[in-house]
Structure formats: C-alpha cells, structure tokens
Computed example of a mutant assay.
Amino acid sequence: MALVLAIQHWRHYLLGKQFIVYTDHKSLKHFLQQRLSSPDQQCWLAKLLGYQFEVQYKPVWENKAADALSRCNDGEFTTMVSYPTWLDGKNLIQEVTNDSDIQQMVAELNINPLGKSGFNVKQGLLFYNDRLVLYSKSPSIPMLLKEFHSTPTGGHSGYLRTYRRLAENLHWIGMQRTVRDFVRACDVCQRKKYDSTTPGGLLQPLPVPHVIWEDLSLDFIMGLPKSKGFEAILVVVDRLSKYGHGILLKHPYTAKSVAELFVKEIVRLHGHQIKDEFCLSSGDGWAN
C-alpha cells in the first residue's frame, strides 16, 4: 500500500507532527473511519498508529505534478545517455585478426559454416555463441582479467562473477580455469577476504556397541516405484553385527504406525532387551 510505505519511509520527519496526505485514491479518504474487513487492512492500520495525519482526495486531473512529463507539449524531446567505452577494443580486434590459428578456423567456417558447432563468422571475426573468440595464450588475457577483477569496476569479485562478466562478450579455451587461477592468486583478495563459513570440526565417532541388537541405525528409502501398494522401505541395521532388516511401508504412515511396525518386525525377532529400551526411550516420542 503506497500510503503506508510513504509514511514509513519519511517517519523520522512525520512522527509527532500533524501532516496532510494528498491522494487520487478516493477510498483512502475514509480508510481511518471505515470498518476493516480484511487482515491486510488491519495490518496497514496498525502500522499507521501514532501518526497524526489527514487524508485529502485530489482528483487525477488536478494532480498535474504527478504526471507532468506525460502532459508536456508535443515537441522534440532529447536525452543525454552516457556509457563506458573500451579504449583497447581496437587493439584486441587487431590481435584476433593477426592470429594464425583463429584465421585458419575462420577460413574453414567460410567453406563450411556448419562445420563447427556454436562457431560462426561475423565481419571476418570468429565468434562462439555470439562471443568473440581469443587465442588461449593471448597477451591481452592478463590485461582483461585485471580489468574485470582488480579495477574499481571489477571490485575484486569472486570467481563466478568475474567469469560471468568476461563470458558475456569473450571466449577462449580454458577460460574458467584461467579466471579461477587468477582470482585465487589475487593478493588483495587473499589478504582482505575471509571465509564466512564456520570451519568444519573433527568427526565424532559413535561408540562401539558391545552387544548385538543393542545399538541400531534406522533410515528410510523413499521415491521407489509402487509394488502392491508399497513405495518406501524402513531399513533397520544392527551396528555391531551389520545385520539388517527391510520393512515395507505404504503412504501415508505416521510415527505411531512406524513404531508399531518396528515392535512387530524387529522386537519380536530380537528379544525383550530391545523392547524394554525402545519403549522407554523411543515409544512415546514416535507416537507423538
């Protein structure tokens, strides 16, 4: 809602002061007096509490300042557009033109335009998916990497952003590896940037059980094709003997039904020790 957003945006000027809100939305004039019938209206009204304002309706034809550009007299309308230009672009094109390997591919494509997938020739230059092709050992590549990564425009971005900027217009063999190695070797990035993720700790091994069917591991295998109505498997494995059971399940199943199936298929076969520990530690939790 524009009214709420505008008042919140200028709240540091409007709090504690009486002000007038002009709008061409006539129903907003009665917003504070009407009966609220939707949760959205209640939320908006709660955000306006504490402000002292009056809403005044202004018809569209009187609100000339809002769309002054669309009401200007017909005539010549000029704009000034600025855009960056690459000063070394001519040198790069001259280098591509003088490269023998690229010119050989251009000659082959002139004979057979469909001979190399993705490559085409435009105005005597070789393009791959509409990107200018450079020789992989071109002396301009280090300059390009520095321009797209180390300059204020590049902003020392990471590998992916630097690669995407270059890949918009350029292509050479081994481009991803070259960009990755350059970013990894950047001295500023290595000094100033830090890893934002918490380093992984050491693995904590589980204690080794001393009795079979004392410590079990359970897991579900999902997404199986239906067979007689079954489409999931509950896998129960004894951690000491590595003996396992596979119990078929049908959707939908709950924690209570799985617990009952565990008692029926596992506890029934492997003694009362599991049953006692299971009922005390897991039965109520699964049922809930």
Rank of each mutant, 00 (worst) to 15 (best):
K47Q: 04
Y83N: 03
H210V: 12
F220K: 11
P207I: 06
Y159K: 13
H210A: 12
T79V: 10
P59S: 06
A6G: 15
C43F: 12
A185F: 01
D187W: 02
G285Y: 10
I266W: 09
P209R: 13
R191Y: 07
Q52M: 12
L248P: 07
E168H: 02
V267I: 09
Q33F: 03
K29N: 09
R71F: 13
G118P: 01
Q190G: 01
V211N: 00
I102C: 03
P113D: 03
T151A: 07
L160T: 13
H251S: 11
R11M: 03
L32M: 15
K275L: 08
L126F: 11
R165C: 11
R184M: 10
I93W: 14
F148Y: 11
Y253Q: 03
K228E: 15
L49T: 14
H25L: 09
I20E: 00
K17M: 06
C186K: 03
L216P: 03
N110F: 09
I7K: 05
L280N: 11
F182D: 00
L28T: 14
D67I: 02
S27V: 13
T178F: 11
S27A: 10
T97D: 15
N73Y: 11
I93C: 15
F127L: 06
R35E: 15
R11G: 02
Y163D: 04
D101V: 09
P113A: 08
W61H: 10
L114W: 01
P152S: 04
V235E: 01
V121P: 05
S150G: 07
R131T: 00
Y135K: 01
T162K: 00
N288C: 06
H272Y: 03
V133W: 03
T178C: 15
L48V: 05
A232T: 06
Y194Q: 14
R161M: 12
D74T: 14
L206P: 07
G271D: 06
I212R: 15
S138E: 12
H171A: 02
L49C: 13
C279V: 13
G124Y: 11
